Every structure is written in C-alpha cells, then in structure tokens.
Amino acid sequence: MNWDWDKLQEKRQRQQGQNPPPRPPRDQDDEASERGEPRARRTPFGKGRQPDGNPFNRLSQMRVPKGRAVILVVLAVVVLWLLSGIYIVNPDEQGVVLRFGKYDRTEGPGPHYAWPVPIESVYKPHVTQVLRSEVGFRSVGQSATFQQGQLRTIPEEASMLTGDENIVNVQFSVQYKISDPVQYLFNVSAPTALVRNAAEAAMREVIGNSQIDSAITDGKLKIQSEATQLLQQILNRYGAGIQVIAVQLQDVHPPQDVIDAFKDVASAREDKSRIINEAEAYRNELLPKARGQAAALRNQAEAYNATRVRTAEGDASRFDALRQEHAKAPKVTEQRLYYEAMEGILSGAKDKVLMDGAAAGRVLPYLPLPGLDQPQAPRGPEKK
C-alpha cells in the first residue's frame, strides 16, 4: 500500500513537469514485502537472517524505548553522585565541611555524610598529630635524630645576638599540634613556614634579653620557657589555630672562631664554682662546730656563776644565823664552832696521835712530810 502511494506521487509530479524526489533506500525486507514474501528478521549480531522460530529474534523485538533508557542512566548517575558524599573521619582527625566554599560545620570521628562536590567539600586535618619544626638546622634523612652527623646547620637562622652584644649559634626545635582546625585551614596559607618564622623571631627576642653565659650554661630552661610563651602569643595574634607544646634547645654554642676561648672561660668558671663550693662546705662544717663550742662555754660560765652566787648567798645566810645565835649565847656558840672546826680537821687526817697535856709538853710536834704515807717499792737482792 505504501509502494502504490509512492508511485502515485511520482506520476503526479511527472504530469506537473517536476522531477521526482529521490527515493529513500530500501532494504531487502521492503522489497520482499512488496513481492508478498515474509520479512527476514535481523539478529542482534549483524545482518544475518535466522528463522522466525529462533529465540534471538524474540529478544531483538523486546527493545527499551530510548527515553526510558536515558532516564535510567540519569538516575544511576544521580545515585552514584549522592553516594559519593559518604565519608569517614578517623579518630585522630576532624572533618571540616564547606558549603559552596564557606565554612559550615565541624564533624567528629566516625562516618558522616556531606553533599557531594560542588555543593560541599570536606577537609580532614590530623588534630592529634604532634608536628615538628626545626630552626637553625635541618635533619638529614627520614629519621629526625639529633646526632651531629645527621644535622645540617643553617647559619642565617642559627646566628643570634645576646643582650651583652655577643654572637651565639642557637639550634632548636618546636613541637606543636592543631588546636583549631578551622583557623589552621583558612587563616594562614603556609602554617609550617609561619611556625618556623614566628619561632625564630621569638627566640631572637628572648636571646636578645639574655646574657651569653646564661644561654650557654644554666639559663637554658628559662630561655625555653620564655620562648614557648612568646611563640604562643604570636600565633594567637595571627589566629593560626596552633598550640605550642614545647620549644627545645638542641645546641647553643659560640661561633667556631672563638669557641676555644669560650671553653677556657667556661673551664675557669667551673673551677671558680668548685672552689667556692669547697669553701662553703668548709665554712658550713666549721661554723656549727664553733657555735656549739661557744654555746658550751657560755653554759659552763653561766652555771659557774650561778653556783658561786648561790654558795655566797648560802654562806652569808649561815654567817648571819651564827651571828644571831652568838649574840644570844656567846660561849656556847664559840664552843660549838670549835668542836665543828676540830671535827673537820681531824676527819681529814688518816693517822691520829693522842697525847695528854704532860706528854704533849715534852715532845716536838711535827708535820707529816709528803710521800711518807705512800708505800715504798721493794728493794732487790743485795750484791756481795
């Protein structure tokens, strides 16, 4: 029927003196249909013909409309795009979510969801990791050790001027971590360089207020503490979101040209300290001993004084009592005093000789010579 309509159109155009439009190409199926023959079915593998009873012909007839296929593809792409917003924050991280480039929220550890790019984007900085910045030197290799053979000195960073106008080389490191991830990500563009530059500025100020002797010997702890506080104040003014854990001095020494002279000065200072300590030890040993002896002598003098005073007072009281008794009975008191005196004299003598008055008038009294009462050593045998 379609072919008759086409012939009729061509005939009309010839009658009107027009050229017939070109016919669209027809395949063998159309020609077979014009002849009343059944159409051969195309297989999905090419132009080969297969009988109508083959199952591949049935599958080729079950075609999905093009509009519905496009919708399914779009839905699959949308689903995959939405699923790409699932993310996981590790325990040592914090998730910072931006919506259209502006900060929106902060998420803790665990699984979370954010609208996929370009609506939202997620940054996950390590907030518990301790970072390290080196000033005045650089560690060589992956392992950050502090051995002299594995360090590379940076003279322009290490050379500093002390308060007494001496040059000293200071090598130190800074340990820090992220305290505020939002400030750390968006307030500064190069946080590592910021920490290094701020640490160098803080250390230069602290060293500039210190003496070289203090920086080299016993003032390192004070310098580290002051540098840590000053560096934290600088980073807080910048709003860097960084917490300074510690500033550690690795090596503090004078320039290489004068290091021998400084070593001699340090040795002399150590000798001076040693001698002073020895003198103080001798003084601490001698002074308490002298104070003890002085206190003992003072106590003995006070005791002797108290004894003499009490004895004198007792003798005076006794004499006053005797005086009163003598006034009442002179002869009896004198006789009593005589007896007491003789008792005291005779009680101290070992040998006593008693003689009556007649015998005492005829003998010569004598006093015992020293050594007569001592036993004499036995004599040895006489020689013939």
Rank of each mutant, 00 (worst) to 15 (best):
P22Q: 14
R23P: 01
R23L: 08
R23D: 08
R23E: 12
R23V: 00
R23Y: 00
R23Q: 10
R23T: 03
P24M: 09
P24R: 15
P25S: 07
P25Q: 07
R26A: 10
D27M: 01
D27T: 06
D27C: 04
Q28C: 00
Q28T: 12
Q28L: 11
Q28A: 13
D29R: 15
D29S: 11
D29L: 01
D30V: 10
D30M: 06
E31H: 10
E31K: 07
E31Q: 10
E31F: 11
A32Y: 04
A32D: 15
A32E: 10
A32T: 03
S33H: 06
E34V: 11
R35T: 01
R35N: 06
R35D: 05
G36I: 03
G36R: 04
E37C: 00
E37T: 01
P38V: 03
P38Y: 01
R39I: 06
R39A: 09
A40G: 15
R41D: 09
R41V: 03
R41I: 03
R42P: 04
R42E: 06
T43I: 01
T43H: 05
T43C: 03
F45R: 06
F45M: 07
F45D: 07
G46Y: 01
G46T: 05
G46S: 06
G48V: 04
R49S: 14
Q50I: 10
Q50M: 08
Q50C: 00
P51R: 08
P51A: 08
P51C: 00
D52E: 14
G53I: 03
G53D: 15
G53P: 00
N54F: 06
N54C: 05
N54H: 15
N54R: 07
N54Q: 11
N54D: 15
P55Y: 02
P55R: 02
P55G: 02
P55K: 03
F56V: 09
F56W: 10
F56M: 09
N57D: 08
N57K: 08
R58W: 08
R58F: 08
R58D: 14
R58I: 05
R58P: 00
L59A: 11
L59F: 11
L59R: 11
S60H: 12
Q61A: 14
M62H: 13
R63S: 08
R63L: 05
V64L: 13
V64C: 04
V64H: 04
K66N: 07
K66H: 06
A69F: 04
A69Y: 02
V70L: 13
V70H: 10
L72V: 15
L72T: 11
V73L: 13
V73R: 08
V73G: 14
L75I: 15
A76L: 13
A76G: 14
A76V: 12
A76F: 03
V77H: 00
V77I: 12
V77Y: 01
V77T: 08
V77L: 11
V78G: 09
V78T: 09
V78H: 01
V79S: 05
L80Q: 09
L80M: 13
L80P: 03
L80K: 03
L80I: 10
W81F: 09
W81N: 13
W81H: 12
L82E: 10
L83Q: 14
S84K: 10
S84Q: 07
S84R: 09
S84D: 12
S84L: 02
G85L: 02
G85I: 04
G85W: 04
G85Y: 05
I86R: 15
I86F: 15
Y87G: 13
Y87P: 12
Y87A: 11
Y87V: 07
V89H: 11
V89Y: 09
